[in-house]
Every structure is written in structure tokens, then in C-alpha cells.
Design a protein around this nucleic acid. Structure first.
Lengths: 113, 113
DNA sequence: GCTTAAATATCGTTTCACGATATTACTATA
DNA sequence: TATAGTAATATCGTGAAACGATATTTAAGC
């Protein structure tokens, strides 16, 4: 059976895409960028990163743009951008859900009939 | 060796806590609430929920408050509230990271020496 | 008592994260 | 041009988590 496509981005994937949103970077630089950006809150290790990179490439979310020596530099595809934007909006929605939680939006809670 | 304590909330856990933040609910009502709140974006099934509930209870994050028949109603503990608030802030920080990504905050990117 | 439905519990599979370790390719230096 | 060092990538193994499907328990209604 044909491998089912990726539907949602995992958290590490999301940060990889965030790193690549403006700049093309190689794997090691992605790690450095994410660590710097998040102040270490997101710990992206080699195990996680290098399992993610081929996966995202297979899905057509990333693309290799150059290779010098062993160093492979990646860029986001159109599809990747769309997925990234969608995930951003999802997260913003989550935060909005938090903010609204006390305003009675879903309260008082009644079970559906 | 003593089971290591839970450090961060998984996404389903977070939504369970969001559901319980204002109201005490039983498992089935948590599912209903989350589905309604998120418009189905977060699909919380029984398998996920009922593995999570005992775990959160063991960790002192939730507490049973009443039992009628089989129905068990849960409430959040002080510890649970603190973890929930911390996770809210973490998510808000993520969204802030998104918003700042184009302002040059981390650009141009230079590797550390 | 019997049936139905609600709520919870369990099981098995699959996927993922992650650290530790190994490999590859370039660079510098003698 | 051997060799040492280093940066970057790849692999491996373990443990944990999500999740759907299925089973079990309890109460209510007839």
C-alpha cells in the first residue's frame, strides 16, 4: 500500500520549517538556528533532525538546493510554505482558544442531545 | 528505578487540562468539550484519553472528585493549574517567535565562532 | 430479568523522538 | 601525499506516545 501522506507537522518539523522560512540552511545550521531562536527551549538533536529531513524531502516539503562536500542545503517548496503557514494559523488559533476560555464561549457546558 | 516525573504536557494532555480549567468533567464530557471547542481539529479518542487520565492522576495533576456509577469526574489540582499556565505561556512564546521571524531578529544568520 | 446505552478500560499497532554512536568528506599541516 | 582533526550527516536502538478497535462494567428503562 502506498505510504500515506503527512497531514500535520510535528513540533520539531515545525521548527525546521521556521528555520527555513527565510533562509536556506543545512542541517547543522538548522540546529544552531533553532537553539538560538528558542533559547534552548526546543532541543533539536541530530537523531530527530536527520530523520525528519528525508521525510520532509520525500513529501515535497523541502528540497535540496546545493551540496558542498557533505553539506546539504535545503529550501522550502511552495507546498512547504503552505503547510508552514497553516501550522502558524493553527497555533494562533490555539492561543486564541486559551484567551477565550474564561469568557463563557463554551460555557455553561451542555452535552449535545 | 522510580518512574521519572512528567516534565512537559503533550498536546492531548494540554487540551484535557483546558477542558478542566473551569469545570470538573468526566472523561466522556472532556472528549465532547474538546471536539466542540476545537471544531474537531483535535481528535481526542478513547484510547488517548483513558491512557492519559490515570497518568495525570498519578502525577498529581488531576484528582477524582466524584463517582456516580461508572462515571468518574475529575478536577485539576494546584500543580495541574501551574503546569497548564506554564504550557499556555510556552505556546504564546511560540506564536511570538512566529511573529518576529521576519523582523531580522535572528537575521542575518551567522554561525557562532 | 433483559436489553440498551453510556462510560470507562484494555490491547495491539504504528509512529515518533531522542541520545549515542558511526560514517563520510573536506582541510590543514607536516 | 600521509595523516590528524573537524564539521556534517547518517544510522541504530530504545522507550514513549497516539490511536482505533474492541471489550468490559454500570445504571436505567421496559
Amino acid at each position: 500500500m502506498p505510504k500515506k501522506p503527512l497531514e500535520t507537522l510535528s513540533e520539531p518539523m515545525f521548527y525546521v520549517l521556521m528555520a527555513l522560512h527565510r533562509q536556506n540552511l543545512c542541517g547543522a545550521d538548522i540546529v544552531t538556528w533553532v537553539n538560538k531562536k528558542t533559547g534552548g527551549r526546543v532541543a533539536l538533536g541530530p537523531g530527530t533532525l536527520y530523520t525528519i529531513l528525508p521525510k520532509l524531502t520525500d513529501e515535497g516539503i523541502l528540497q535540496e538546493v546545493s551540496t558542498e562536500g557533505r553539506k546539504r542545503t535545503y529550501t522550502m517548496t511552495e507546498k512547504g510554505s503552505m503547510l508552514y503557514e497553516a501550522e502558524c494559523q493553527r497555533l494562533q488559533q490555539v492561543v486564541r482558544d486559551i484567551d477565550r476560555e474564561g469568557d463563557g464561549h463554551c460555557l455553561p457546558f451542555k452535552k449535545e442531545a
